[in-house]
Design a binder for these strands. Structure first.
Lengths: 142, 142
DNA sequence: CTGTTTTATCTTCCTTGGAATATTATTCTG
DNA sequence: CAGAATAATATTCCAAGGAAGATAAAACAG
């Protein structure tokens, strides 16, 4: 019973600590908090509608709308009208957003590698990712 | 490079989704959000000073101070003066806090089991916990 | 013992994101 | 096509926690 609690507690704590570390590094190196990096990354493969962005980031639509607002203000994103649905807008990376993403991606990977690699060899990292994926699939088909 | 990002992204998303599910269940069954449950659980083994509570929960001291305020108002926690240091206060469970914790613990474990067990057999859950622990140890010696 | 430094906590301001609601556009029914 | 139902987004209000500064008590230097 209590192992269950420890199990999730530890997972949550891990996520918090990893987030803090990577966030601090990205802020220091690129003035780009991790939350913004993630938004950029979600849009790397092309524009998304606000709702799809929300889903990909596991936040609410309202939240995604506001994230978009802020990052449009910062010049990292742009809203363009969806040609097929005038209610919707397609959120897209600006040139500045794209280059912020490109610049930060290396920092992100390096920082994470610095933390994770000494603790887990490649096989274990791989195994862990696979376990996470299996749980994600069970949770939302993703 | 990009696998690194997916690796952490997936971990973060998993944490968000698990949090949401368990949080919703605890709210529904006990009117006790997961953040409060975690606070109660952190204090289950005995009183802690605010700073120690903060550390155990991986939040800031200021945050812990405010969590304590709210939960004192709710009657779940109490502050008692630390006999050895008049700057500090020892945060402790009230009877109501203890019984809320006891009641919610079963719900928490059951909810988590419902989600995790179909996706991961016991051996994998165990393995995953061990990987998480190894990373935590690397991150903060915990 | 007095002044400085450190420690533990609290407080204020700010950002973030959720919940609920409003708004506007689309789709569907008849 | 008119009206109702639905869908996509935006907006308002609220709770939570971080950062930085403010207190208050303790520890320490002399």
């Amino acid at each position: 019973m209590s192992e269950r609690i420890t199990w999730l507690n530890d997972l949550i704590r891990l996520e918090i600590l990893l987030w803090e570390r990577v966030d601090a590094r990205l802020r220091a190196a690129h003035d780009l908090p991790l939350a913004r990096f993630q938004t950029l990354h979600a849009l790397a493969d092309g524009p998304l509608r606000v709702g799809d962005l929300a889903q990909r980031m596991s936040i609410t639509v309202g939240g995604a709308s506001k994230v978009t607002d802020r990052m449009v203000t910062l010049g990292l994103l742009a809203r363009e009208p969806d040609p097929t649905d005038r209610r919707a807008s397609r959120v897209t990376l600006t040139a500045a957003g794209r280059s912020a993403l490109d610049a930060a991606t290396g920092t992100y990977a390096a920082c994470l590698a610095e933390i994770v690699d000494p603790a887990l060899p490649a096989a274990d990292r791989q195994r862990m990712h696979e376990l996470v994926r299996r749980l994600l699939t069970a949770l939302d088909g993703g």
